[in-house]
Each structure stands twice: as C-alpha cells, then as structure tokens.
Simulated scan of single mutants.
Amino acid sequence: MKIKNTWVKNSLGYDNNIYIYQDKKMFNYSVDTILLANLTSLNRKTKRILEIGTNNCALSIFLSQRSKNIKIDAIEIQKEAIELAKYNIEMNKLENRINLIHNDFNNWWKIYTKNQGKKYDVIICNPPFYRKETKIKKNISKSLLQATHEISLTIDQIIEGSSKIINQKGYLSMIIPPERLVDCFVSLRKYCFEPKRIIMIHPRVKQKAILAFVEARFQTGWGTHFEPNLYLHPDDESKHEYLEEIIRLYKPIKIK
C-alpha cells in the first residue's frame, strides 16, 4: 500500500517501539486515547475486545500491547480511516490479533446478534464528543466532523448496541467530556449497565476537568466509585510537560 502525502508517522506512547501513521485531515490520537487504553480493566480472563470507531487504529494497537492473549475486533465506518488503520496494523505486525471491520456500528451489531456472534468481554470506545447541534468550527474536514460529532453515531446508540453483544458483567469503557456525563449515565442505566468507575481528568490541579473516564459493567450490582482525579500537567502554567503519573500511563500496563 502506498503512503499518502497527508500521512505522518508518529510514535504511539513512550518507549514502546510502536508507530502509526496519522492523516493530518482526520482524527489524530491524543492523551485521551492512551488513558482510555490503559485505564480500562483487563485481566487474564479477558479474551475478546471490541473497539467501536477505531479510525486509524491507535487505540486498538496500543491496547494490544497490554496482553498477547487478547483478540480485538475494531469497527470503523469511514473508508479512508479503514485504509489507514489497515496499514498501521500491518506495519506493527498485528494482523493475527486485530480484525478490522468496515461497517456502520448501528447496522453491524444487529446483523451480529442475528447471526449469534460470540459476545465480548470488553467493549471500548472513544466516542464522538459533541452533540450534532453543537456549533461546528469552520474548515473542519468531513472525516474529522464525523469522528468528533454525533453525525453517524451517538453515545446512546453505542451503549444500546453494546448491551446486545457484551457478556454479563462485561466492561464498557469510554472517555467523554464531563458535560456529557449525565447523558452517559442515563443511557447506561437504560440499557442495564451500571457505571462502576469514574475518573476525572484535569489539565492542572486548579483547572476544571476536561475529560471523564467512565467504565460500566453489564447486568451487575449498583454502585459507582469516583476514583482519584488525574492531573496532566504541573501547577505552573508555564510548564507543559506531563506529570510522572501520566508519563507512566504512556506505556502499556501489562496484564499480570
């Protein structure tokens, strides 16, 4: 496959010897991708994972480094993103562990359940952050708009579909803006998920949260736990490096 002029090669995390190509015009991975991959609960019993909306496959590729025993299905609606994801999987020699699915999740899960597809232990998603009616920035590409706004897929649709294809007590994890937490909680309860772990992510100690990690479990007991906040940068606003705790999370946490 020929590398396009708009593709740029980047390292994925720190000291991992993992690289991916990203497209300047499309969604690019950031700290939320890394945190989602490492904060999600995995254990030795975890075998089958689904990523909804993989885009360039950064999340699935990073997640795959946590254990050699997991198999990941990664679904994506955009043709251009699938092409890029396929190249990244091949470059990292993960063809036997990450299976790409080019489809619309809203249609795919219905066909999957009709065919009695095997259910997943973990479903992970870095969903579109913004409601469809949110004011859109000028000059945003169509592919980036689809990745960041609820044009083709909403949080409610993600949770509904996930409820049909996940094992009992399976994990569903997402990172969303704090402003979407109530939307998320309402949908989780509606489809028999219980939000179990919440972690608020702040740029600095004195600044408000910009992200929220949410991990829910399907058909399990009630009870939500707010874990200690994560802070990305030092208090001194002139310093932009990550704190040691965040740097540690930029390396895959191996399953013991």
Results as ranks from 00 to 15, higher is better:
Asn56Thr: 07
Thr40Trp: 01
Lys45Leu: 08
Ser67Val: 04
Ile70Gln: 06
Ile52Met: 09
Phe27Tyr: 15
Ala58Cys: 03
Ile20Val: 15
Ser64Arg: 06
Tyr21Ala: 00
Asn55Tyr: 09
Ile18Met: 12
Asp23Arg: 12
Leu35Phe: 09
Asn43Gln: 09
Asp32Ala: 02
Gly53Val: 08
Lys71Glu: 12
Phe62Glu: 14
Phe27Gly: 00
Lys68Trp: 00
Leu63Ile: 06
Asp23Phe: 09
Leu42Met: 04
Leu63Lys: 04
Leu42Gln: 05
Arg44Met: 11
Leu59Met: 04
Tyr19Arg: 08
Ile49Pro: 04
Ile61Leu: 09
Ile34Gln: 05
Thr40Leu: 00
Asn43Leu: 07
Thr33Glu: 12
Ser60Trp: 03
Phe62Pro: 11
Asn55Asp: 15
Arg44Ser: 14
Tyr19Met: 03
Gly53Asn: 12
Ala37Gly: 14
Tyr29Phe: 15
Lys25Leu: 14
Gln65Ile: 00
Thr33Pro: 13
Asn43Pro: 10
Leu59Asn: 13
Asn55Ala: 15
Arg44Thr: 14
Tyr21Ile: 06
Asn43Cys: 08
Phe62Ala: 08
Asn69Ala: 01
Lys71Arg: 15
Leu35Ala: 09
Val31Glu: 13
Met26His: 13
Asn38Thr: 06
Ile18Cys: 04
Ser67Pro: 02
Lys71Phe: 15
Lys71Leu: 14
Gly53Gln: 11
Gly53Ala: 11
Lys25Trp: 07
Ala58His: 05
Lys47Arg: 15
